[in-house]
Amino acid sequence: MIVLREVSYTYPEAADPALHGIELNLQPGSITGVVGASGAGKTTLAKVIAGFLPRVDGGELTGTVCVAGRNLAELSLVEAVGQVGLVIQNPFNQISGAKYTVREEIAFGMENLGTPRAEMAARVKQVAALLRISDLLDRSPYALSGGQMQLVAIASMLVLRTPVLVMDEPTSQLDPFGTRLVFAVLDQLQQAGTTVVIFEHKLELLQAHADRLLVLAGHTIVADGSPTEVLADERVDGWAIGSTRYTRAARLARGRGLLPVHGALPVSFEQAAATFGGAR
């Protein structure tokens, strides 16, 4: 579905590339998580996949980005955004400012694309129910809390039903309930065949929901595999991506002499259950 070959990208007037040597092939209908410390290049990669770099921000892109078998560079921006939806990092900037109710704000993209009115109304209703924001629909988009605004921003992209959805830290302002809600929605999208790329820090949820986990460090992909594999990698401390609560608990237990000194630490609930069950 999405194929990146030898992609490097340098921002205008920057000395060094923000991304280099990116090789990526994402299967249709998969959920891919991408983690990386601040400044690792997550937002840059999200924009490259969505076709916004170098088109909107300038700079220099080398290599090729293909979506659904078509080279993004050869598509117009409008065609590209029809294929790949992008939830940007700051929900405040995703809100258009052109609309005075959440309902119309969510419909804004569909209005631009000329979706018939009845269909727009139905889709807005469905997406709002999915993200539990139906009671906000008549409010002003600017009278919302950060978390509510983030859900509206996500809804405004979900409603466009693009085959690929790229989300840049979509749960940064959400409470644990909202965060789990978003991940549950990802599972539903996946069942509907949508390809999802999510840039996130919450490792437990990525481990539970993503098919694949990529690690960005030093402006390139340093690890790529199943979440369980990647989180168990021995280089994980060097990537500054943190660790799951299961790993942290096991490390503490080991320090107190409750677990054997050798052997791999658990990265998932299942592994932790086995590890601690075995220790008892």
């Binding site: 909107v56 409008v78 992008l86 119309e104 804004f108 993209g109 992209m157």
Partner: peptide, 24 residues
């Protein structure tokens, strides 16, 4: 903000030449 906003607007089809519709 302006740069990000323009990205977000494009992602929502603002550059589209389709005949626009209105929800309300």
């Amino acid at each position: 903000d302006i740069e990000e906003r323009s990205t977000a607007m494009e992602a929502r089809g603002f550059g589209s030449t389709a005949r626009r519709t209105t929800l309300v």
